[in-house]
Design a protein around this nucleic acid. Sequence first.
RNA 1: GCCCGGGUGGCGGAGUUGGCAGACGCGACGGACUCAAAAUCCGUUGCCCGAAAGGGCGUGAGGGUUCGAAUCCCUCCCCGGGCACCA
Length: 973
Amino acid sequence: MNDSAIPQPGDLPRQRYNAGLANEIEAKWQNRWEIERTFWAPNPTGDLSEGFDALSDNKKFFALDMFPYPSGAGLHVGHPLGYIGTDVFARFKRMTGFNVLHAMGYDAFGLPAEQYAVQTGQHPRVTTEANIANMKRQMRALGLGHDPRRGVATTDVDYYRWTQWIFLQIFDAFYDEQADRARPISELIPLLKADPSIGWDALSERERRELVDSHRLAYLDEAQVNWCPALGTVLANEEVTAEGRSDRGNHPVHRRPLKQWKLRITAYAERLLADLDGLDWTDSIKLMQRNWIGRSVGAEVKFGVAGHADASIDVFTTRSDTLFGATYMVLAPEHPLVDVIVASEWPNATLAEGLTDIRPAWRGIFGSDVSPPAAIHSYREFVAQKSELERVAEGKVKTGVFTGAFAVNPVNGNQIPIFIADYVLMGYGTGAIMAVPAHDQRDFEFANEFDLPIYCVIQPPETWLSEHAISQEAPAADWPEAFTGDGVGVRSSNDGVSLDGLAVSAAIQAMNDWLEATELGRPRVTYKLRDWLFSRQRYWGEPFPIIYDELDLPIAVPNSMLPVELPEVVNFEPEIVADDVDSVPAPPLARAEDWATVDLDLGDGVKTYRRELNTMPQWAGSCWYYLRYLDPTNTDAFVSREADEYWMGGEEGEAGGIDLYVGGVEHAVLHLLYARFWHKVLFDLGHVATKEPFKRLFNQGYIQAAAFTDARGTYVEAADVVERDGGHFLGTEPVQREFGKMGKSLKNVVTPDDIYGNYGADTLRLYEMSTGPLDASRPWSTRDIVGVHRFLQRLWRNVVDEDTGEARIDPEPADEETRRLLHQTIAGVSQDMTTLGFNTAVAKLITLNNRLTQVVGEQGIAPEEIVVPLILMVAPLAPHIAEELWERAGNDGSLSREPFPIADPAWLVMESVEVPIQINGKVRHRLLVPTSADETETEAVVRADPVVGSLLEGKTVRKVVVVPARLVNFVVG
RNA sequence: GCCCGGGUGGCGGAGUUGGCAGACGCGACGGACUCAAAAUCCGUUGCCCGAAAGGGCGUGAGGGUUCGAAUCCCUCCCCGGGCACCA
């Protein structure tokens, strides 16, 4: 953009505050902070406790930024918005007497470094470390007051040793439903032995191990994944195109079950939901987590299967009141009972009420000459070929196949056909539904597609019928859509229960009571939340501390043998296997043949074990990093009890947790849910003292940037575009403006380095804080930066002689008006700091400084009474210039622990206040009224004013509204 | 489709237990300094009418409640985000 506002060197005073001087000052103070250990936050005990005694009477404050990934491109100016916000707040808290912990580490495992390694052969560790070094440099240059001792990276072997340790804690735990908490697996075995229905003594070694493994919070499971044989790896949903092919290389992707590690987060669904209530998070984030967990209250109902006396199918429903309207049943295609109940031939008997024959459509899309098992097989393949995206893209067109079997509705004994269809998901509820097409839109669509009967059992109200132009008598099959609202039950009774005439909620209650009494069903709560798929076929991740013995069952690597270090490999790519749907992935770690098997003595002699070759997903390391910040050098534990209790502990009676956690809303669900889950496991097992990690969560906004396209629609370098004549131009060519994320592809990246060079870090910090509230997204505008730069320049000039560099400060008191403004500013800024309202804090500081500029203009010197508190108030926002002014004003050492100014209430009250005088709600005049005047006095003062008198002349005052010290409104007729 | 946020000058944004709309900054315009420019400093700046005094209009649109609405209620439009066959 236009560079004309950038200060240029020339015949300027030697000590003018410009980019050059700012950079000098900034480098000086960044070095001093480092040497003087200004931001070291002492622990109460242990390695990092130096200096604690001096702060032992202070309260603690733990400020945290979300863990950044050290990308090769480094930071652009959009990244540090939140980091600056936490730094300003942390510095403010430090000045109000807190022992503040603020640190920054790196979530450094991940795909980009691995892909770069695949392309170049450069080891991901080399790339990662270079990127971390660059980001550290950029953050240091921003003047962020981090404790450098605590900046861990997930790729540090000393760090992932403890990630592995925590995984083993999860592996070695089970969820005790009665106690509603996780317990060590060692406590499970006596319970299993004591359960006569298990018959422990009769079980083989393998059976015992498998039984125990099935209770673990980390377990192996056959999970449906996006398997791409050509790439040799499973892919995330985001990596699969709408056509069901790989994003990279356009290879076929298949949905198939693969044996994968899963973490039993679903055991915590209820607590993850309930404990949200006590957290200081925004409602929208809580809502997103609630929706994700997706609690649903209903009933499980047992349906018999005709001709299979020993088989029954449990369905989950939230609408047990519609049981009498069930006309068919659907199982998920993968449901294990499908193979048990499937008929060998298509039945032709008239079994179900209202059905006279098997409809041709029921045999599915595979023709009438295939048998049910063949149709089922074909349908399963058809479903497996489809990606998630395709299933969604196909919208509401329902597909499915009849199994040839019939279920028996327990409420009336009716036989209803059983289908499989992909609109029923194996992972939710029981993987089976009863279908009530009259009162469920999906079932309605399926029933119409498959020519199935539709019976109304909830009478819709008149309004609904008339809205849809349906007559009272019309059969439900003629409805344009299902009726899902509230109505009264009809045609819904048997010998034991009648729902007729009952409203939906009462009918559900009555039906559930009956189901429970007859043992045909029971109340049940289900969740949308699924267990967490925890394996990745990657190199650059934490190896699992798991080995397999001759039974091919998993065994934990003993703690004494941790860490399990990543082996060196030459090729970081997953092995490309034939394009075979049934092939097995060979993760990169399989190539480290010396590593993949290991001879160990686990107490029963040296044996050969096979290692787990998958690695953990990137989320693993970020699940607990905040705990390692507390005690990063501890070699005996992932965190000491003392450090955990000190930094995470709450005030008396408070829940505790991190005092302020700032990050983007994109982590609203995954990271925040995973980390809460790990924290709760650690809490249950007694390793941490708090049940929730993040007490207060704040979501910062994003910085967007203008991007420009030329006539061909190609992005052009935004930095070269000039604004003139109300348009944007690249040279002489007009270009189109749009706004988007800052990035290479839009050619609109602005880096902090660019801004330091032209204005300095303090200006960048102040600019980012001033452009809006921290939680709002806003467009970047390099042009606007000059505003806050001028502010710092004026502040500097008010205090320092631009020629000599000497401070000029007047010990004489300031005038009353300025003093009053000072105290108002202190009160306002303190308030704004507390609420993270940094933009308005900056505005108030500019206002005070503008007043100071006037005073200096008149008197040639700034009163100390104003200057000193102003410097201290500026310090959290623009710390380098504040430190420098503080020093030049004659102080030794850093101001980082100087007390933040406190307003004198005496100067906050005004003797009189200007109030607007309204006639019929319109402002017609303004008058000074004593602040202390009550309604009567105010009215008297106002009525006595000659201007008001003339305004009211000839008018009838019907009513007078007086709000003391606010306004007076005359209602005239 | 469902669920959340949000729409205020040319721009970023202030202001909500209902009480002076537009703080602060950018830009724009005018002035000082300068041979000139930059930088800096001073002033003006919501829109319309008016020489001015003053008046009218104005917080996405329309309606309502109220002495008084950016703020509360109803209907609608637009933008951003989340979820998406969850039985």
